[in-house]
Design a protein around this nucleic acid. Structure first.
Ligand SMILES: [Mn+2]
Ligand SMILES: [Mn+2]
Ligand SMILES: [Zn+2]
Ligand SMILES: [Zn+2]
Lengths: 147, 147
DNA sequence: GCCATATTGAGATTGAGTATCAAATGAGCA
DNA sequence: TGCTCATTTGATACTCAATCTCAATATGGC
């Protein structure tokens, strides 16, 4: 029996499964562990490759579950590709570096108020919004100024 | 020779083709005319159905061209489906009604400044952003309060 | 008109994601 | 511990949007 790293995401996911009367299966644990080991954002397809013994449909099903439970969030890349990322829970947006590809969470978003105000001038009642920001992360920006 | 309505979008598209040394073809004109006749937003697939004699690849190619030239813009629906819409040129966002499905342009967007400020607290230099707003249009909102 | 080249379109192909459904597995209970 | 049955899994087929291929066609300049 190999010793397994106890990653908080894995622990929390399993706890949450129990809470919600989902079953705690070996496959679910494997998927959660693979997710926890991904650096930055990743595609569902990449997860499938990291889990060759888990069926594609099962990977997609569990990614959906992880998103619903707030462990993962969707990251829309500039080219329209959908990635996933372990993220802060609650509402937030993403800063996606188009130079190195990294993505970080933008916390303390308070756009909703401004957006509502803007839209109300056209009689529109905002209920939800999506925002993604593209540009240079700190590292890539400093590399650019250094050269 | 049937009389054809002279829609400004069609005229402008053809003029722009000449400018950019693209060829003015009957097919391109047909596609532009079909686009001009679409109400609100539409999918590329719906355009294909409206143009049964035009090849699917050609429809997609010309939609891409219309987007590049600014005659059409992409509208990302809440379920992730990609629609297109004849829109104002220049930077703007969309107010998408999740009740009736209509979409209108949100003009005078000046989020870039606020977004830059927010992101700069994390050392991130914003170069671009996507914003889509979902909620109730004026009509649907007033219907809701009336009932 | 002729020619070189851009454009078109039928059909094949890709790629992400979902549906099917029989087999495997987990959780509660005897 | 073993039984039972609903949940979960996964091989496979399938859907759907979008792109690729490449021979046939149409265009614009000469
Ligand atoms: Mn996130
Ligand atoms: Mn628009
Ligand atoms: Zn970077
Ligand atoms: Zn509406």
């Amino acid at each position: 029996m190999p010793t397994k790293a106890h990653h908080p995401l894995v622990e929390d996911f399993l706890a949450r499964l129990e809470e919600k009367d989902y079953r705690h299966t070996g496959t679910r644990e494997e998927v959660a562990r693979a997710v926890a080991q991904q650096g930055s954002h990743f595609t569902a397809e990449a997860l499938c490759e990291a889990l060759p013994r888990v069926g594609r449909a099962t990977v997609y099903r569990n990614v959906k579950l992880l998103v619903e439970m707030g462990f993962l969030c969707r990251v829309l890349m500039e080219d329209g590709e959908l990635h996933y990322q372990v993220s802060h829970k609650g509402h937030h947006h993403h800063l996606i570096c188009t130079y190195c590809g990294q993505s970080q969470d933008l916390l303390n978003c308070d756009f909703q108020g401004l957006l509502k105000e803007k839209a109300s001038t056209q009689g529109f009642e905002v209920e939800g919004h999506t925002v993604e920001l593209y540009g240079r992360c700190r590292t890539c920006a400093s590399e650019a100024t250094a050269s």
